[in-house]
């Protein structure tokens, strides 16, 4: 399978301080890869470096994606725009490359389970879960080939988090999206991922774990011995990373 991301010797400094040093990463097309690690270890910086949002240096930096999309920890919606206009934004910004069409906007909105009645609402009129759905719709509207997600469900309650986990899994599976996902939640990482990278405090990937679970994920999976075993395994490695 072709690599969507192929990076070696990646170095990132923020404000003169090295955050990532000599890091290598290969992600095949269509894979859901999660990154876990202690707070401040550089998970989000890695995501931003791959998405070209922070300055970086590397020996090799090959990416095979044209249309990236990012879902941030906060929904980062524009408060002066309605749901419709927020979802429309990426198309407006890339008008030279993409046609601004209502069909794609409606499709993205229905994909994340928002109702037509919500389209004219402003972000402040929506719940936290709905705002995150709008943020996801905005990411999906350009039909991306890679999705970066930086702890998007961290602020949501457990039930809503599980609902949005399922929704994200189904969308990424159906669209065959390469997904790079940062989370603190090991259960979430195991449930969603085919592969988990564990980072330590120094910003080094200390474990690269393949998750041997069925490709199809459904809520029942969370009670199976294989799933629980995988959660224990990742937790153990994470504890080692934090030690």
């Amino acid at each position: 399978m072709k690599n969507s991301i192929d990076i070696s010797s990646l170095n990132v400094k923020l404000g003169g301080t090295p955050v990532l040093q000599n890091l290598s990463l290969q992600i095949p097309e269509g894979q859901w890869c999660s990154i876990v690690g202690p707070s401040g270890c550089g998970k989000s910086t890695l995501l931003r470096a791959v998405a070209n949002l922070v300055p970086r240096e590397s020996e090799k930096f090959e990416t095979n994606f044209e249309t990236p999309a990012f879902v941030f920890q906060d929904p980062t919606l524009m408060p002066w725009r309605t749901v419709w206009d927020n979802v429309r934004l990426p198309m407006e910004l890339q008008a030279s490359r993409l046609e601004v069409d209502s069909k794609s906007i409606l499709s993205a909105i229905s994909m994340v389970g928002l109702a037509k009645a919500d389209l004219e609402k402003y972000p402040r009129e929506l719940s936290g879960g709905m705002r995150m759905r709008v943020s996801m719709a905005r990411a999906l509207v350009t039909r991306p080939d890679i999705l970066f997600m930086d702890e998007p469900f961290a602020a949501l309650d457990e039930l809503l988090r599980q609902q949005l986990n399922q929704l994200s899994h189904e969308i990424c599976r159906d669209q065959q999206l390469t997904t790079l996902f940062v989370t603190h939640n090991v259960s979430e990482a195991v449930y969603l991922s085919e592969r988990i990278l564990v980072m330590n405090d120094s910003g080094v990937i200390i474990e690269d774990l393949q998750i041997a679970l069925p490709k199809e994920r459904s809520p029942e999976l969370r009670t199976t011995p294989d799933y629980l075993q995988s959660v224990q395994l990742v937790t153990r490695h994470l504890q080692e990373a934090m030690a």
């Binding site: 990236p68 407006e92 910004l93 890339q94 350009t142």
Partner: peptide, 15 residues
């Protein structure tokens, strides 16, 4: 976050 979003979609100075 919004500035990063604009950067991701390669917004120009005018946008």
């Amino acid at each position: 976050g919004l500035a990063e979003l604009m950067q991701l979609y390669q917004a120009n100075r005018f946008q």
